[in-house]
């Protein structure tokens, strides 16, 4: 982190007003994308958040078209991104539910679906 970049950002901050820093982890984007339809069942779901996550208190589960959980094991977390491998090959609607704790100790949760074409 360079001092000039801090000073530049500070000046921008004071001149332009609100910059809206994220004090909680919100879902930024997902792969497969939220509400998307994909041609083949993915090998994993990855969720990218607006803030670093605490692995000990962050979970994700994926429910397949038959109503069974298809996620395998504990999610892997790299900073802001959470991945979970899937054992999925069926077409249909998959539901992803997540609950995460951000490093500033606030919990957020959410859910979304994606479809696999027949």
């Amino acid at each position: 982190m360079r001092i000039p970049s801090i000073l530049k950002s500070l000046a921008l901050l004071l001149v332009m007003g609100s910059v809206g820093a994220h004090a909680h982890a919100f879902l930024d984007h997902a792969d497969p994308r939220v509400g998307s339809t994909v041609n083949a069942a993915p090998h994993e779901v990855s969720l990218s958040f607006t803030q670093n996550l605490e692995p000990a208190f962050s979970t994700m589960e994926v429910i397949g078209p038959s109503g069974q959980r298809v996620d395998e094991g504990k999610p892997r977390i790299d900073g802001k991104v959470m991945h979970v491998p899937l054992r999925a090959d069926q077409p249909g609607t998959y539901r992803v539910k997540w609950r995460v704790l951000s490093v500033d100790t606030h919990t957020t949760e959410g859910a979304f679906s994606f479809k696999v074409r027949e």
Partner: peptide
């Protein structure tokens, strides 16, 4: 607090 979670240079500030 909330500052701990802000990423990047903005977070450092």
């Amino acid at each position: 607090g909330h500052a701990a979670g802000s990423p990047g240079v903005i977070g450092d500030i």
